[in-house]
Protein backbone atom coordinates (compact mmCIF):
# COMPACT_ATOMS: atom_id res chain seq x y z
CA UNK A 1 0.00 0.00 0.00
CA UNK A 2 1.35 3.41 -0.94
CA UNK A 3 1.10 6.66 1.00
CA UNK A 4 -1.64 8.11 -1.23
CA UNK A 5 -3.90 5.10 -0.82
CA UNK A 6 -3.34 5.16 2.94
CA UNK A 7 -4.05 8.91 3.06
CA UNK A 8 -7.22 8.30 1.04
CA UNK A 9 -8.44 5.57 3.37
CA UNK A 10 -7.59 7.62 6.45
CA UNK A 11 -9.36 10.77 5.24
CA UNK A 12 -12.36 8.60 4.40
CA UNK A 13 -12.28 7.12 7.88
CA UNK A 14 -11.79 10.54 9.47
CA UNK A 15 -14.79 11.93 7.59
CA UNK A 16 -16.97 9.17 9.06
CA UNK A 17 -15.56 9.69 12.56
CA UNK A 18 -16.18 13.44 12.31
CA UNK A 19 -19.77 12.80 11.28
CA UNK A 20 -20.32 10.29 14.09
CA UNK A 21 -18.73 12.74 16.52
CA UNK A 22 -21.01 15.53 15.37
CA UNK A 23 -24.13 13.40 15.77
CA UNK A 24 -23.00 11.91 19.08
CA UNK A 25 -21.70 15.11 20.70
CA UNK A 26 -24.44 17.47 19.58
CA UNK A 27 -27.24 14.88 19.37
CA UNK A 28 -28.07 16.64 16.14
CA UNK A 29 -27.86 15.87 12.44
CA UNK A 30 -28.69 19.36 11.23
CA UNK A 31 -26.99 20.15 7.95
CA UNK A 32 -26.53 16.45 7.14
CA UNK A 33 -28.36 15.02 4.14
CA UNK A 34 -30.10 11.72 4.87
CA UNK A 35 -30.30 11.22 1.11
CA UNK A 36 -26.52 11.27 0.77
CA UNK A 37 -26.14 8.95 3.77
CA UNK A 38 -28.59 6.47 2.24
CA UNK A 39 -26.75 6.60 -1.05
CA UNK A 40 -23.45 5.89 0.70
CA UNK A 41 -24.94 2.92 2.55
CA UNK A 42 -26.13 1.58 -0.80
CA UNK A 43 -22.71 2.24 -2.36
CA UNK A 44 -20.91 0.17 0.27
CA UNK A 45 -23.45 -2.66 0.26
CA UNK A 46 -23.25 -2.94 -3.52
CA UNK A 47 -19.46 -2.68 -3.74
CA UNK A 48 -18.53 -5.01 -0.92
CA UNK A 49 -20.51 -8.01 -2.14
CA UNK A 50 -16.99 -9.35 -2.63
CA UNK A 51 -16.69 -9.75 1.15
CA UNK A 52 -18.24 -13.16 0.58
CA UNK A 53 -16.08 -14.20 -2.37
CA UNK A 54 -12.64 -12.53 -2.29
CA UNK A 55 -10.31 -12.09 0.65
CA UNK A 56 -7.58 -9.48 0.16
CA UNK A 57 -6.35 -8.62 3.65
CA UNK A 58 -7.57 -8.22 7.21
CA UNK A 59 -7.15 -4.46 6.72
CA UNK A 60 -9.47 -4.44 3.69
CA UNK A 61 -12.07 -6.64 5.34
CA UNK A 62 -12.15 -4.56 8.52
CA UNK A 63 -12.40 -1.29 6.56
CA UNK A 64 -15.24 -2.66 4.43
CA UNK A 65 -17.15 -3.74 7.52
CA UNK A 66 -16.51 -0.35 9.15
CA UNK A 67 -17.81 1.50 6.08
CA UNK A 68 -20.92 -0.65 5.83
CA UNK A 69 -21.60 -0.60 9.57
CA UNK A 70 -21.05 3.13 10.08
CA UNK A 71 -23.14 4.17 7.09
CA UNK A 72 -26.05 1.97 8.23
CA UNK A 73 -25.69 3.29 11.78
CA UNK A 74 -25.87 6.90 10.58
CA UNK A 75 -28.97 6.21 8.47
CA UNK A 76 -30.55 4.45 11.44
CA UNK A 77 -29.76 7.40 13.74
CA UNK A 78 -31.19 9.98 11.37
CA UNK A 79 -34.37 7.98 10.79
CA UNK A 80 -34.99 6.31 14.13
CA UNK A 81 -33.14 7.99 16.97
CA UNK A 82 -35.68 9.80 19.10
CA UNK A 83 -33.60 12.95 19.63
CA UNK A 84 -31.29 13.01 16.61
CA UNK A 85 -34.07 12.72 14.03
CA UNK A 86 -35.74 15.90 15.28
CA UNK A 87 -32.88 18.04 13.96
CA UNK A 88 -32.99 16.58 10.47
CA UNK A 89 -33.58 19.32 7.87
CA UNK A 90 -36.23 17.35 6.02
CA UNK A 91 -37.68 20.37 4.22
CA UNK A 92 -34.27 21.29 2.76
CA UNK A 93 -33.22 17.76 1.86
CA UNK A 94 -35.47 17.28 -1.13
CA UNK A 95 -33.01 16.12 -3.77
CA UNK A 96 -34.56 13.37 -5.92
CA UNK A 97 -31.92 10.84 -5.04
CA UNK A 98 -33.80 7.92 -6.58
CA UNK A 99 -32.91 9.36 -9.97
CA UNK A 100 -29.23 9.05 -9.08
CA UNK A 101 -29.77 5.40 -8.10
CA UNK A 102 -31.72 4.61 -11.26
CA UNK A 103 -29.28 6.48 -13.51
CA UNK A 104 -26.25 4.79 -11.96
CA UNK A 105 -27.86 1.38 -12.28
CA UNK A 106 -28.76 1.84 -15.92
CA UNK A 107 -25.26 3.10 -16.64
CA UNK A 108 -23.80 0.05 -14.86
CA UNK A 109 -25.97 -2.24 -17.00
CA UNK A 110 -24.54 -0.59 -20.10
CA UNK A 111 -20.95 0.19 -19.05
CA UNK A 112 -19.19 -2.52 -17.03
CA UNK A 113 -16.20 -4.81 -17.39
CA UNK A 114 -18.01 -8.11 -17.30
CA UNK A 115 -21.68 -9.00 -17.37
CA UNK A 116 -21.70 -10.64 -13.95
CA UNK A 117 -23.75 -9.71 -10.91
CA UNK A 118 -20.68 -8.66 -8.94
CA UNK A 119 -19.15 -6.56 -11.71
CA UNK A 120 -22.41 -4.77 -12.46
CA UNK A 121 -22.94 -3.98 -8.78
CA UNK A 122 -19.33 -2.87 -8.54
CA UNK A 123 -19.70 -0.46 -11.47
CA UNK A 124 -23.05 0.71 -10.06
CA UNK A 125 -21.41 1.51 -6.72
CA UNK A 126 -18.63 3.48 -8.40
CA UNK A 127 -21.08 5.57 -10.45
CA UNK A 128 -23.38 6.13 -7.50
CA UNK A 129 -20.52 7.15 -5.22
CA UNK A 130 -19.40 9.75 -7.75
CA UNK A 131 -22.71 11.60 -7.43
CA UNK A 132 -23.74 10.62 -3.89
CA UNK A 133 -22.54 13.95 -2.46
CA UNK A 134 -24.98 16.01 -4.56
CA UNK A 135 -27.91 15.98 -2.07
CA UNK A 136 -25.46 17.00 0.68
CA UNK A 137 -24.04 19.89 -1.35
CA UNK A 138 -27.51 21.09 -2.25
CA UNK A 139 -28.57 20.94 1.40
CA UNK A 140 -25.52 22.96 2.48
CA UNK A 141 -26.13 25.54 -0.18
CA UNK A 142 -29.77 25.92 0.85
CA UNK A 143 -29.03 26.24 4.54
CA UNK A 144 -26.28 28.80 3.90
CA UNK A 145 -24.32 28.55 7.12
CA UNK A 146 -22.30 25.39 7.53
CA UNK A 147 -21.39 24.32 11.02
CA UNK A 148 -17.78 23.46 11.71
CA UNK A 149 -18.01 19.68 11.96
CA UNK A 150 -20.27 19.38 8.91
CA UNK A 151 -17.75 21.43 6.91
CA UNK A 152 -14.89 19.18 8.06
CA UNK A 153 -16.95 16.10 7.24
CA UNK A 154 -17.58 17.15 3.65
CA UNK A 155 -13.98 18.30 3.23
CA UNK A 156 -12.49 14.95 4.32
CA UNK A 157 -15.03 13.02 2.29
CA UNK A 158 -14.00 14.98 -0.81
CA UNK A 159 -10.27 14.73 -0.07
CA UNK A 160 -10.48 10.93 0.05
CA UNK A 161 -11.19 10.43 -3.65
CA UNK A 162 -8.59 13.00 -4.62
CA UNK A 163 -5.98 10.94 -2.74
CA UNK A 164 -7.21 7.82 -4.53
CA UNK A 165 -6.56 9.51 -7.87
CA UNK A 166 -2.98 10.24 -6.78
CA UNK A 167 -2.76 6.59 -5.71
CA UNK A 168 -3.87 5.44 -9.18
CA UNK A 169 -1.28 7.68 -10.83
CA UNK A 170 1.39 6.33 -8.47
CA UNK A 171 0.41 2.72 -9.15
CA UNK A 172 0.38 3.34 -12.88
CA UNK A 173 4.06 4.26 -12.77
CA UNK A 174 5.30 1.92 -10.04
CA UNK A 175 3.34 -1.28 -10.73
CA UNK A 176 2.60 -0.82 -14.41
CA UNK A 177 -0.98 -1.29 -13.36
CA UNK A 178 -3.73 0.73 -14.84
CA UNK A 179 -6.67 0.75 -12.43
CA UNK A 180 -10.01 0.24 -14.07
CA UNK A 181 -10.84 3.20 -16.22
CA UNK A 182 -14.38 3.18 -14.80
CA UNK A 183 -12.94 4.27 -11.45
CA UNK A 184 -10.59 6.81 -13.04
CA UNK A 185 -13.36 8.71 -14.80
CA UNK A 186 -15.83 8.38 -11.92
CA UNK A 187 -13.17 9.45 -9.43
CA UNK A 188 -12.40 12.54 -11.49
CA UNK A 189 -16.11 13.42 -11.71
CA UNK A 190 -16.52 12.81 -7.99
CA UNK A 191 -13.61 15.08 -7.09
CA UNK A 192 -14.68 17.76 -9.57
CA UNK A 193 -18.09 17.98 -7.88
CA UNK A 194 -16.29 19.14 -4.74
CA UNK A 195 -14.29 21.86 -6.51
CA UNK A 196 -16.69 24.62 -5.56
CA UNK A 197 -16.93 23.44 -1.97
CA UNK A 198 -13.12 23.15 -1.67
CA UNK A 199 -12.76 26.71 -2.91
CA UNK A 200 -15.04 28.15 -0.24
CA UNK A 201 -13.60 25.83 2.38
CA UNK A 202 -10.06 27.10 1.76
CA UNK A 203 -11.21 30.72 1.57
CA UNK A 204 -12.92 30.46 4.95
CA UNK A 205 -9.85 28.74 6.36
CA UNK A 206 -7.51 31.42 4.97
CA UNK A 207 -9.66 34.26 6.23
CA UNK A 208 -10.35 32.49 9.49
CA UNK A 209 -14.04 33.00 8.84
CA UNK A 210 -17.09 30.80 9.13
CA UNK A 211 -17.73 28.62 6.12
CA UNK A 212 -20.57 29.98 4.02
CA UNK A 213 -21.70 28.78 0.64
CA UNK A 214 -23.25 31.33 -1.68
CA UNK A 215 -26.85 30.54 -2.58
Amino acid sequence: MNIFRLAGDLTHLISILVLLLKIYATKSCSGISLKTQELYALVFLARYLDLFTDFVSVYNTVMKLVFIGSSLAIVWCMRMHRIVKRSYNRELDTFRHYFLVAGSFVLALVVHEKFTLQEIFWAFSIYLEAVAILPQLVLLQRSGNVDNLTGQYVFFLGAYRAFYILNWIYRYFTEQRFGRWISWISGLVQTALYADFFYYYFMSWKNNAKLQLPA
Partner: peptide, 10 residues
Protein backbone atom coordinates in the same frame (compact mmCIF):
# COMPACT_ATOMS: atom_id res chain seq x y z
CA UNK B 1 0.89 -2.70 -21.63
CA UNK B 2 -0.18 -2.00 -18.05
CA UNK B 3 -2.49 -4.60 -16.57
CA UNK B 4 -5.92 -3.70 -15.37
CA UNK B 5 -7.79 -4.14 -12.07
CA UNK B 6 -7.36 -2.76 -8.59
CA UNK B 7 -9.41 -5.33 -6.75
CA UNK B 8 -7.39 -4.70 -3.62
CA UNK B 9 -8.84 -1.20 -3.20
CA UNK B 10 -11.77 -0.04 -1.15
Amino acid sequence: GPKSSHKDEL
